[in-house]
Amino acid sequence: MQRDQKKQIVGLGGIHVSRSPGEIIKTMALGSCIGVVMVAPKQRAVGMAHIVLPESKIDMDRAREVPGYFADSGIQALLEEFRKFDVKSNRDLVVKLAGGATVMDANRTFDIGKRNVLACRKALWRNHMAAIAEDVGGNFSRTVWVEVNTGRVFVTSPGRGRWEL
């Protein structure tokens, strides 16, 4: 990450799509949340949604206010946002997923991370899409960012360094 790059932070339930040269789109310290990254190489547009929970049916009002909060409404809203950037076909989009960490819980009572991953995959399938790369699960938090210039996606995790997805 270079210092002169403009940074757009995507908070819980946030969605952001950009074509601004030099910008990076970033989401911090994902625990059980998922960073859904989509890149449209032809249109040179890049976007991210910060998904918090699997399904919008638990609170439709919230889904209307903040569609990015849930996997189903969030992926739909991210796709719609790309339409504003001339991305007319989902086939123009490359998808990557990161996050969905699991707490160290032997009884798996609180495993919302895994359910978030499954809900994201399901929402993508409904749109005839699938992620070409995933960095999900495990019991560690991740910070994820994507560069608008290159479409490259990076992940960092405390104590684990940085890698490209």
Partner: peptide, 12 residues
Amino acid sequence: MMAGTGTYLDSM
């Protein structure tokens, strides 16, 4: 911590 509100190094 699951919601990303931890103290970074030890989160999760």
